[in-house]
């Protein structure tokens, strides 16, 4: 039976701006499922990544708002200084609770709630980064039966985060950024063919 995917979650830290661009700029405007993304960012940042990616993408990119309902064709980025959580009714929640892995937003927090909400319907992707955030998250996605993908550390701008994720979760795929983009595009096309 073909898996029924419901959401893609992506986490990145150092080097994420370029890595996100590589993937998101190729996705079509009507990409078939919502994408939720955490990029580590300084607390009082203007969240420049959203403007930057919107300038390079067909798909809509926005900062996540609380209680917002997830929709296909949109990439939701976590807000600076807030954790991002996914609720069972496919809406978003924010929290200012303490940092996790020295990070707020934390990739682990978002991935764990995504795994809890979407189970085997979630695709978890870990990209470039310098710390261990995302490792527990990708493990949670795997344990929930979701699909796990990690960027090939040899091509990552900062390899520590993908390395750690690979060691901890034995992901389903280790792809280059182009490989990840192709994979998502293929899923989208397969979905459209029914």
């Amino acid at each position: 039976m073909k898996p029924q995917y419901k959401a893609v979650v992506i986490g990145a830290s150092a080097g994420g701006l370029y890595a996100f661009k590589q993937i998101i700029s190729v996705l079509p405007v009507d990409f078939f499922i919502p994408i939720i993304a955490v990029q580590h960012i300084s607390p009082d940042s203007e969240n420049y990544i959203i403007t930057f990616l919107n300038n390079h993408s067909a798909i809509t990119i926005k900062e996540a708002d609380e209680k917002e309902k997830l929709k296909p064709g949109c990439v939701y980025f976590s807000a600076p200084n807030y954790h991002l959580l996914i609720e069972k009714d496919a809406t978003l929640s924010l929290s200012t609770e303490q940092k996790v892995n020295y990070s707020r937003p934390s990739i682990d927090v978002m991935f764990e709630t995504a795994a809890d909400t979407f189970g085997k319907g979630v695709i978890g992707i870990i990209l470039t980064g310098a710390n261990q955030d995302g490792t527990a998250g990708i493990r949670a996605v795997k344990e929930a039966g979701g699909l796990t993908i990690v960027q090939d550390p040899t091509e990552a701008e900062t390899p520590a985060m993908p390395k750690s994720a690979i060691e901890a979760s034995a992901p389903d795929h280790i792809f280059s950024l182009d490989g990840i983009a192709d994979f998502l595009l293929n899923l989208h096309q397969a979905h459209n063919k029914g």
């Binding site: 959580l85 609720e87 069972k88 929640s93 609770e97 927090v109 764990e112 709630t113 809890d116 909400t117």
Partner: peptide, 9 residues
């Protein structure tokens, strides 16, 4: 309260 937050705590 928001359920995901409460559950996590």
């Amino acid at each position: 309260y928001s359920p995901a937050h409460i559950k996590r705590r």
